[in-house]
Amino acid sequence: MSFREKTHWAAFLALAAAFGWYFLAYPWAMVSTDAGVAAVAAMLVPVTIIIIAVLAVTAAFFAIRAPKEAHLKEDERERSIHVRGTHLAYYPLVLGAWINMIAIFYRFSPGVYLNLLMATVVIAELVRVGSQLYYYRRGY
């Protein structure tokens, strides 16, 4: 498994775990209140810190174990895997944007829009990293 594939696994698991916790622990009963909006901000801080910390620690760990691999430049196969993953992530991103636009007509609270937008970005990111992992495993 290459250095980039390992860091992709770390990113995928960190994203799934951190935002899994966020969406499970979020106080949905107060989503329509000002406190619900404040809760989004308050919960995003630890989620962001956890993701950055996991990515930094795992990248450093794998780089120390295999420094040569960590310094290798991205080659053409890896670049093409990244392009494919980003391309696939575009679809959930657009779908999420449309859902948000339609939701505006139903006059939800800002907390609902914030969470919808965040779910859109998280799903798109999971599709991007997940599909890249799939292509890494398949060879291309």
Binding site: S2, E69, E76, Y140
Partner: peptide, 19 residues
Amino acid sequence: VGVTRQTIAAIEQGKYSPS
């Protein structure tokens, strides 16, 4: 060649078409 070991393996196994 200037590619990763994994890329050579993918080419060898006929999984990836190189430039």
